[in-house]
């Protein structure tokens, strides 16, 4: 069922300790900062977080990591010039890291939303990130078996929602939003604008409302 909520606090209230949480965004573009802040305030801990990165600077996901709420990161690029909170936790052995090539990360998320049980991909074949994984030669190329990444909750950011929960995004802030919305059992979208049903051109909708459970407008 689709809910329109007044506050980000209400939107994230149901997130339990130990949940797997997908968080949209590539760098700061598309990162749902207000929902992450609310998750931080809500106190849920022992989380597994799926994001491309592992937080930048002193905001958003970086703070969730700093406060020790994240047990495990599944990401492609944790190390950045300003990923000091992740770096500190990682070096102290206080956070687990599953490092996934970016395209495999995206496809594993997509597979979860699409009901695919796993897939073979050439990306990573012969590298240390494929160690221990099943491989095959298919179409003459070495390929690695990868499994879907499911989540309890997705926190995403979109530009506009309509009354049916359909979403459109803005420029490269789209990034992981559409695939995370489909992969999670419960998808929470923060949007800049809500328009009545019929206010978005059906031809232009990127995420159909069937994938969206909660919407909160953030100024």
């Amino acid at each position: 069922m689709l809910n329109f909520l007044d506050t980000v606090g209400e939107a994230v209230a149901g997130i339990k300790d130990g949940s797997t949480v997908m968080i949209g965004g590539f760098g700061n573009a598309g990162q749902p900062f207000e929902l992450i802040d609310a998750l931080l305030d809500g106190g849920a801990t022992g989380l597994t977080v799926v994001n491309n990165n592992a937080g930048q600077g002193d905001q958003g996901l970086a703070l969730l990591i700093k406060e020790g709420r994240v047990r495990k990161m599944i990401c492609s690029f944790p190390r950045q010039s300003d990923s000091w909170h992740f770096d500190e936790k990682y070096r102290a052995g206080q956070i687990e890291l599953e490092l996934v090539p970016q395209g495999n990360l995206a496809e594993r998320i997509r597979a979860a939303g699409a009901g695919i049980g796993g897939f073979f991909t050439p990306t990573g074949y012969g590298t240390m990130l494929a160690e221990g994984k099943e491989t095959r030669i298919l179409d003459g190329r070495g390929q690695v078996f990868e499994t879907p990444i499911h989540a309890d909750v997705a926190l995403i950011k979109a530009l506009t929602a309509d009354g049916t929960g359909n979403l459109v995004y803005r420029k490269t802030a789209r990034n992981f939003g559409p695939i995370m919305a489909a992969a999670a059992k419960h998808t929470i979208a923060q949007v800049s604008e809500i328009v009545p049903t019929g206010g978005l051109d059906p031809e232009n909708i990127v995420t159909p409302g069937i994938y969206v459970n909660s919407i909160v407008k953030v100024a």
Binding site: Y90, L99, P101, Q102, G103, N104, T123
Partner: peptide
């Protein structure tokens, strides 16, 4: 700290 991003893809 390993980071791969899209390099392998």
């Amino acid at each position: 700290i390993p980071a791969v991003g899209g390099a392998m893809d």
